[in-house]
Design a protein around this nucleic acid. Structure first.
Lengths: 317, 317
DNA sequence: TTAAAATATGTAAGCGCTAACGTATTCTGG
DNA sequence: CCAGAATACGTTAGCGCTTACATATTTTAA
């Protein structure tokens, strides 16, 4: 959950754990079955098996590692008696790695074990693993096409350059009102029939009973909205606040909230309340900072299923 | 390619690289924009921001790391002046971590940058990242349900217990003949009309002209096949060899090959050849070991599009 | 009350990998 | 022919994380 703050960035450890899990399982199997092999060795051993004696760099390129990694792995393999190091007589810079007879013997008895590993992994993971591989490959390709840092800096420049404005309702914004509210409703709850009706016809359900709707614009983009609904004369509800997920953190929510509160005062409202849900912690903190106070119980006769929080605007004067 | 030998196990490094890429990009952005922050700090800082002063273990649980990792991260954060360590007066074992004013200041100016990071990452990766997350979650769940090592050992026991037999053609095996050949054809090439015809009616195209078909059975499962086709009197072609991908390494291919060669001798054949493709290195090595010799050019008048290898059986007597 | 068990944290060592460097050796162009 | 560039490879230090261990402190149970 808190990892989400980093967006997609916190994958590293999860994936390392995942792959360590696999390696660990394979090693456990090799140990149990008495195969004198470790799973981390396999890429190197397998390449030498297929390609015959090879230089460090050849192996490194083939298995997608740096020459250093191969060199260090080779240390272990030599220590385990699986690989022999030799100078290349034709080129004194090169080291030729070759399997020992011991390694050849070990590998040649490994067929059934590999087969079992393959089938066991498949049985456990089925298509999941395939999806994972596809997804990784897709990400790698996308990153090659375009460096992320560049994309981020471009976004930042665009955000900084665009002014953040609060504007009142206009018919052209009806679609935005729906979109911005549907986004968080669908993420956290269910979009119900009543929601669809109110969001589709804000004029009828909000403006006409004496309410107001504001929008936050960043440059040309409409990134947030908030509504003030007159429940009965002088009694207002703050509702339908939504900020585009990708544009949070710019202060648009607070600006919208302030606009609604100002409008409430302009209309000489006597009471302003809101209903929300305890899952929306960030929003609740913002309401609190703006002067809303948490009430001990939910609002009597609330017409929201999802409301378990009731707050009333009580600014300290 | 050689990683494939490990099946799905070689993900670790790729994913670490992928996530390092993200961290690196984010850090580059923070540096460029002058934010005194590193991306690895964020989970901790963000949690302290949201939850207030907390103990090491609380933070560790919240961000999904070990207490050691948090402790070490805290060292850095203290050195950077972002976090304060205090003993918990109520419980002398605990250390309470709290943000410094400096950290609070830094974090509060970070909104637009985070927003840009989110949008930049989204722009670069779009749904790829979402798929990746889904796939990881699916794998994690699958692993929880069933330990891999156990599944592998079960497979191994099953494989070891079952006898590997070579059996001649029987009508009930027609479907297996198709399946086993279609598998590798579709993976490496294209399944063409002519293939479909031959594979669907082996009696007509292979047996009736004086050929033979063998199957490898492991217990109840049919895991491989190979055919001997009489091209003209005394001239035989070894063809349609296929072993189920998940059952390779058990020696089924070699056993099938030997069966076909024995059959060739039993029929007093004068010549035995095969056509194949240089992509199928493993198969080619097996043919070589069995006595087939690579010819310098492709077979004249070959009826295979995909054949770029021509081998003739020439056992050293 | 007090010994044993549990909890909270820091520290050390290690993993697999990388980047940076150093040292050979070979290639290249004048 | 020979100086500089390029190549091959081992070594070192470091990353972020883990496990194993050491040291406090608190809780539990007899």
């Amino acid at each position: 959950m808190y990892l989400a703050s980093l967006g997609k960035l916190a994958l590293g450890s999860r994936l390392k754990a995942l792959s360590d899990h696999f390696y660990g399982a394979a090693d456990e199997v090799y140990r149990t079955l008495g195969a004198p092999i470790e799973s981390r060795w396999l890429p190197v051993l397998r390449y030498l098996w297929d390609a015959g004696p090879s230089t460090v760099t050849d192996v490194a390129n083939a298995i997608g590692q740096t020459h250093s990694a191969v060199s260090q792995l080779t240390d272990k393999l030599v220590r385990a008696g699986m690989v022999r190091r030799r100078r290349d007589p034709a080129d004194g810079r090169r080291t030729v790695l070759a399997l020992t007879d011991k390694a050849r013997g070990a590998l040649s008895t490994l067929g059934p074990i590999w087969c079992a590993v393959r089938r066991g992994v498949n049985a456990s993971l089925d298509e999941h693993a395939a999806h994972l591989l596809d997804a990784i490959a897709a990400c790698e390709r996308a990153l090659q096409d375009r460096p992320v840092a560049e994309a981020i800096l471009a976004e930042h420049a665009a955000i900084k350059a665009a002014p953040l404005q609060i504007v009142p309702y206009a018919p052209a914004l009806r679609g935005d009102f729906y979109r911005l509210n549907a986004q968080w409703l669908e993420r956290h709850f269910q979009l119900e029939e009543i929601d669809r009706a109110v969001l589709s016809e804000p004029e009828r359900h909000i403006l006409q009973p004496g309410g107001a709707i504001f929008f936050a614009r960043l440059g040309d983009e409409v990134i947030g909205t908030c509504a003030l609904l007159q429940e009965s004369p002088g009694i207002f509800e703050l509702t339908k606040m939504g900020v585009d997920e990708t544009f949070r953190g710019l202060g648009a929510g607070r600006r919208l909230l302030d606009a609604c509160i100002a409008e409430f005062h302009r209309r000489d409202g006597r009471m302003l309340f809101l209903e929300s849900n305890s899952r929306l912690q960030t929003a609740l903190r913002m309401y609190q900072k703006a002067g809303f106070v948490m009430q001990p119980s939910v609002r009597p006769g609330s017409h929201y299923e999802r409301a378990d929080v009731y707050m009333i605007y009580q600014p300290q004067t």
